[in-house]
């Protein structure tokens, strides 16, 4: 029986979010909060592994109270339990402080039911770093396996996992000891529409909610903004490039102008010919 924990994040939908051009800050009201799309694949993979090997899937997140909604989304995908750590003292955390807080929560979860495997999404769409997963692994002193795009085998008896890691020009097959941490590519699976019973369960589900005081051995100095070595010093809209020449006229005229622009680089096309 495996205990798999997927670490997830609620994020503003950065595709929709609008910037306030005066202050260069995100206008959060314009963007709905969603489950980070990469994390849906992490939860889905955890659920599939539970179906293969049996066990429990927990999800863990840090965030403000409304992040419960993202946990419910994971219950819809098929997670069994959800944990939210929420506290003002967590606020403003960079990747280092985030991995610290999540590790403390993972230690607490592990006391009840030892964790065999942690799965994270490749990265979050608002932070775009992919640094929290490996950070958690280092803090727990378990091997991090990033860019995982296929889980070949998990063998708890032998204490090993075998996965495919995506590389720039192919993939590698890696064996690791258990417990370990995967951060998974989106290509690892497809997340189907939630089955109806899961949606019912999610609607009624209340996750565990912990504050800093519920966690053990926490060094407050390592949390939130205070525990974050990186700071954003300046945010700016990059200078607008000057823009190019617009090709005017009717369709035919536009296409002819475009054609002559392309043909100025004729050598690129000639080499590909039959000659």
């Amino acid at each position: 029986m495996l205990h798999i924990v997927a670490c997830i994040k609620q994020v503003p939908d950065t595709k929709i979010i609008k910037m306030n051009p005066k202050t260069n800050t995100m206008d959060r009201r314009t963007a709905p909060a969603i489950l980070n799309p990469y994390d849906a694949h992490a939860v889905e993979e955890a659920v599939r592994l539970r179906e293969r090997y049996g066990g429990t899937v927990s999800v863990l997140t840090m965030g403000p109270p409304p992040a419960v909604k993202a946990i419910k989304k994971c219950i819809e995908i098929g997670a069994d339990e959800g944990y939210l750590i929420t506290d003002r003292r967590f606020a403003g955390a960079d990747t280092l402080a985030t991995s610290y807080a999540l590790t403390k929560a993972l230690n607490k979860i592990s006391k009840e039911n030892p964790v065999d495997l942690i799965i994270c999404g490749k990265m979050s769409i608002d932070g775009d770093t992919g640094q929290v997963g490996p950070g958690i692994a280092r803090r727990l002193d378990i091997p991090p396996l990033t860019s995982v795009n296929k889980v070949i085998e998990i063998n708890k008896q032998e204490g090993k996992a075998i996965v495919q890691r995506k590389l720039e020009d192919g993939y590698e097959v890696v064996q690791s000891t258990l417990p370990c941490l995967f951060s998974v590519e989106k290509t690892i699976n497809e997340v189907p529409y939630a089955p109806f019973p899961n949606m019912l369960k999610a609607a009624k589900y209340n996750p565990y909610i912990w504050s800093v005081d519920d966690l053990e051995d926490v060094d407050i100095k390592q949390l939130g903004l205070k525990g974050s070595p990186t700071i954003v010093s300046k945010v700016w809209a990059p200078p607008k490039p000057e823009g190019g020449t617009m090709l005017e006229g009717n369709r035919q005229e536009q296409v002819e102008q475009l054609l002559s622009v392309l043909l100025e680089k004729k050598e690129l096309f000639m080499t590909k010919g039959e000659s």
């Binding site: 640094q131 997963g133 490996p134 950070g135 692994a137 991090p144 990033t146 720039e168 070595p229």
Partner: peptide, 23 residues
């Protein structure tokens, strides 16, 4: 900021510890 570079930097930053800016 390749898969190897990011993987390594994330681990090293956590152990040092220090700040790491991505991409």
């Amino acid at each position: 900021a390749t898969s190897t570079g990011k993987d390594l930097a994330s681990a090293v930053a956590t152990d040092l510890p220090t700040g790491l800016t991505a991409d």
